[in-house]
């Protein structure tokens, strides 16, 4: 699995969908999610020097996201990628099991930092089921597991629509946050779409 391809594809997908993410955030947050994440990922891809090993790619991208994103998605996605990169270590190849451990480390990082659990209407509602689905399918190889993770992320994100937000800016809206797709869950779907595409490429 080419982690550079994963991050670059994530950046492309967010750039293409930045307006939609910002619109989703404007409905229940402060309307900057697409703009911020797009800026952070642009900085992340620019920071990726040629020849970095897979773990270092994620750590470098994560550092840039933390530093350049500007919104809550910076520390959350940045922290997640850094922890995932650390979990991969210095190895030159990423197999299905190593990627599973890295994804689990990413989920832990997001939950430790943001203190969100499933059902709070956050990115965790897409991330947690995606990681679980990946781990369940890891024996079938990276491509199949990543596809299972994407399917679970999409389902989890859709599941945020009827929820009332208990974390983040949307929680200030109380019951008025019901009926909207969570923007962080929506961008997490893009993270897993990028992963599935990078994994399918080999």
């Amino acid at each position: 699995m080419d982690t550079r391809r994963w991050i670059e594809r994530f950046a492309e997908l967010v750039a293409a969908d930045a307006d939609r993410l910002t619109r989703l955030d404007a409905a229940i947050g402060d309307g900057d999610h697409g703009t911020n994440l797009n800026r952070g990922l642009k900085a992340a891809t620019e920071a990726l020097e040629p020849g970095l090993p897979p773990g270092k790619v994620l750590m470098t991208a994560g550092r840039a996201l933390v530093s350049k994103t500007g919104g809550a998605s910076g520390p959350l996605y940045g922290g997640a990628l850094r922890r995932a990169g650390k979990a991969l270590g210095d190895g030159a190849d990423v197999d299905a099991a190593a990627l599973g451990a890295a994804l689990h480390a990413a989920l832990d990082a997001v939950q430790e930092l943001g203190k969100a659990v499933e059902g709070d209407k956050t990115m965790v509602d897409a991330l947690a089921p995606a990681v679980a689905a990946y781990e369940a399918a890891a024996g079938d190889g990276v491509a199949a597991a990543a596809q299972a993770a994407l399917d679970a992320a999409e389902k989890g994100a859709e599941g945020t629509v009827p929820l009332q937000a208990r974390k983040g800016r949307a929680s200030y809206l109380g019951p008025r946050s019901v009926g909207h797709l969570d923007p962080g869950a929506a961008s997490t779907v893009l993270l897993f779409r990028a992963l599935a595409e990078a994994a399918a490429d080999g």
Binding site: V66, A72, G74, G79, L113
Partner: peptide
Amino acid sequence: DLGSSVLTARTYLE
């Protein structure tokens, strides 16, 4: 204060 300020502070301390 809000959201990303808290997360950024926690990340900085980490």
